[in-house]
Design a protein around this nucleic acid. Structure first.
Lengths: 259, 259
DNA sequence: ATGAGTGTTGCCCATGGCGCAACGTTATGC
DNA sequence: GCATAACGTTGCGCCATGGGCAACACTCAT
């Protein structure tokens, strides 16, 4: 997904500016017109008009009567349409619900988003432990089963590009070097599935398999996740085989999510 | 939230057009350039350029190498930022997680979106039955506990405006007239919480309470939901009191979601 | 092989987006 | 309490950009 701010061919400058405002607000939380104007390199009257256009459609919201703006709920509504159409195109919900029922844990679909993992759909299994909704969340690639499943089959240069911005130790088993990650991804290719054993968060376990398009390219990952009290390392092999089988039911579809 | 398509003061025509494309794709699932051009009343070259601007930022996606477009994953990413900032502003996640742990069921936050209910945040409880993620989903107001909690305290004219587009019987206990709904909303005001007993979907039970701003206006609803096998009508009173207490912890915040 | 329909792109010009100036409002410092 | 600074908004006129036209390449149906 291109994320250049400057125009590629056939761009529309004022639309680009408005969408850049959305990205700035996503990163910063909230912002004023003068700040946005400075970021865009335009006059504050221009920024004000662009904000008003976004405000009228609910894509931004005013934090107070005067001043600061933030992203609006119109984005949540539009995103709800995206996840509904994921199912409409691929019938993925039937597969993910069946998987959740079979293994008794939460199931997600994730995609590679530059060097991050984006969760695009979720079915909650009969888990005994409270877990938050992953939908719309973004996590690093090196310490999640989904991230490993999404990157293991990339060309070496793309795998390097997909590495995290930071090798900070996030939990007790976090991979903290490119060398260790390469070794792990080699193992993922051998097994055909990826695992995460308390690598991004304490107590968070996951097993993931790639979903491929008709050209055998990895376009998404199917993920089973749950707490360490429920998913033990001894379970990885059997869950790995199960998630591979379910992922293969979702593979081969040309219109599944593309990067 | 204004949803007029024609410019209000200080609008930007090309940004409005681009955002209208997003709304058309949300409703229709997918569309071609020529269809979008016809809907917008512009030349197909104009529609093509607007689509390209959206494509470059991932807000739309091409279904195939040539032709049809749909909403893209960039919207899911932006929407994830919205729900993250909900917590940042109000600290609502601590309250909703505590509630989910206490009652053992899924907890949502919903807002009124014209005459629909939009789910904007969710914490999954240790439910024993598989339930889908509500985040981003939109449901009618008359047959959901959240919809009743969001509309019961409106002025009469606003309550009427918030009524559903159709009184179709969706489940065995669906309210099917304005008169019955008014009686029900009077009861909600008396109790201080709302209930849904298999009204929108078979087996789907919910209890909701209003979240109010510092002017005592209802800005969101806090919702407990689960299957009929787990939540029985005899539980409504105790869950009602619990959800009212949690909702009051989230009330009084001037920057909570506004319509 | 041909025609219809789609989406894309170079080019030119009409118009819509933009900057400027002025204004109203709020917050801050003294 | 008052003056000043800073913010966001809006009318206006100008020009840079957005848009329509024409031509093209491509796909699909006949």
């Amino acid at each position: 997904m291109g994320n250049t701010h400057l125009a590629e061919s056939s761009s529309v400058q004022s639309v680009d500016r408005a969408l850049t405002i959305l990205e700035i607000l996503a990163q910063r939380g909230e912002s004023g017109v003068t700040e946005i104007a400075a970021d865009l390199g335009v006059h504050k009257s221009t920024a004000s008009r662009l904000m008003t256009a976004l405000l009228n459609r609910g894509l931004v919201d005013q934090v107070s009567d005067r001043g600061r703006y933030r992203l609006g709920l119109g984005l949540v509504r539009l995103a709800g349409s995206v996840t509904s159409s994921l199912d409409a195109v691929s019938g993925s919900r039937a597969v993910t619900k069946a998987l959740a029922a079979e293994v008794g844990e939460t199931v997600n679909i994730a995609v590679l988003d530059n060097n991050r993992v984006l969760y695009v759909d979720q079915v909650i299994g009969p888990s005994m432990v409270s877990m938050r909704s992953w939908l719309g969340q973004s996590v690093p690639t090196h310490c999640t089963a989904s991230g490993k499943a999404l990157t293991a089959w990339l060309d070496e240069s793309d795998r390097i590009a997909a590495r995290p911005d930071s090798w900070t130790k996030l939990a007790q088993n976090t991979i903290t070097s490119g060398e260790a990650l390469e070794k792990e991804l080699k193992r993922v290719r051998e097994l055909g599935y990826a695992v995460a054993n308390q690598e991004m968060e304490t107590d968070f376990m996951a097993v993931a398999a790639p979903i491929r398009n008709e050209h055998d390219e990895v376009t998404a990952a199917l993920v089973i996740s749950g707490p360490a009290s429920r998913i033990k390392p001894d379970d990885f092999e059997s869950l790995g085989h199960i998630v591979k089988q379910s992922a293969s039911k979702l593979s081969g579809n040309p219109n599944f999510w593309r990067e």
